[in-house]
Design a protein around this nucleic acid. Structure first.
Lengths: 202, 202
DNA sequence: TCAATATCGGATCGATCGATCCATAACTAG
DNA sequence: CTAGTTATGGATCGATCGATCCGATATTGA
């Protein structure tokens, strides 16, 4: 049974989609409540009633992104594929998604800012994206470990070094895409990273 | 002889340094004129008299950055060093600079935003950083070409692919540094990228 | 039917944004 | 000296920021 009180008159998914696209295109700070109201069609009261604050709406929009376009990075956690194949799917899939012209360029998680002054304000809006980046990194690292266990990588492979190389390239894709680097160049670059993976093989 | 009119009473270098640190730490949008006034000690009139606008001040601050900490990437244009050595100095130098605790983390140029809506507003503040990124990329590309010419890289090396791999990793360093990745991991990752360079050798 | 609850559209809040104005001060040129 | 030019501190501008308030409306449980 529905909860007491007047029911919501808007489509939550559609609202989150509109907010996601706006934050994706402009970033958190540059997106105003006035723009969000226009894009979602909601009033301030509805927006704040449902999300408490601009930060709250951003968090939900990011979760919507992670469950949608951002889910391409989930493949790296797939333990069915070989570690090398998982990394390949991660990189090529991310490039394809970020250069898809049906939505804004780049990755919302990679572009939405970094915690510049750690310990200080601990800006709430950035916590959710930083957490996703940390999650992606941990999954990549686990994949590298699996690669060593399976013999794809040499026993003495530096786990954090290879993880940082792959994660660094992944994060750098966004800026390149926004700057106009063609998808083809990035796919070739991803293959070069994977060639490195092979070179480290034991 | 000095120009007519009342002379400036402030130290231009000190003002640009203060503004640079603020933009570096918080980004363009999140930095307010009130903060810039406090950090520089200047009044609004002095600030606008000297730089015309917030964007103008940002541009000068970025130029100050490029001539200072950001100059580490200039080594890649040094044609005295071998191409491989130039890339090595570029990556390791950037990592050292960005993890130096005497100033904000990461790279101002890589973190100061990207042109999300090309052709539209062509946001002035982002043009100057985008131009520097394009310059860095072109220099890396020229270095790759030199590597092929000198025989360090195979004749059939995909120039744009290798360029995108190196530039992508370079750009990704900033986010990793801001997220707390230790410098040691990044230096090892840079060596892995260079190992890739060796693997492509003809 | 009658509270209680929750959402709605829309007006409005104080704070802060980037930017401008003005009277005054400090300099050069003649 | 005077006239012209530029920088200064400080008040202030209209616009916009994120957020709140209010009266009306729609629903549930008694």
């Amino acid at each position: 049974m529905p909860p007491a009180g007047r029911p919501r008159a808007f489509d939550m998914e559609a609202v989150l989609e509109a907010a996601m696209l706006l934050f994706w295109e402009q970033g958190y700070e540059a997106t105003s409540l006035a723009q969000l109201r226009e894009a979602t069609g909601l009033s301030s009261a509805s927006l704040y009633g449902a999300f408490d604050s601009k930060e709250g709406l951003f968090e939900k929009a990011v979760e919507h992104y992670i469950a949608g376009p951002g889910s391409v990075t989930d493949v790296v956690a797939d333990e069915v594929a070989s570690p090398r194949e998982a990394i390949s799917l991660l990189l090529h899939g991310s490039i394809s998604m970020q250069t898809d012209t049906s939505h804004p360029r780049g990755c919302l998680v990679a572009l939405s800012g970094t915690v510049r002054a750690p310990g200080a304000g601990e800006a709430g809006a950035r916590k959710v994206v930083a957490a996703r980046r940390a999650s992606d990194r941990a999954r990549i690292r686990a994949c590298v470990v699996r690669g060593i266990d399976s013999g794809e990588l040499a026993e003495d492979t530096d786990v954090d070094g290879v993880t940082s190389m792959i994660h660094g390239f992944l994060l750098g894709i966004s800026t390149q895409v926004c700057d106009g680097t063609p998808a083809g160049h990035l796919h070739t670059a991803a293959d070069a990273v994977l060639a490195n993976w092979d070179a480290q093989g034991g």
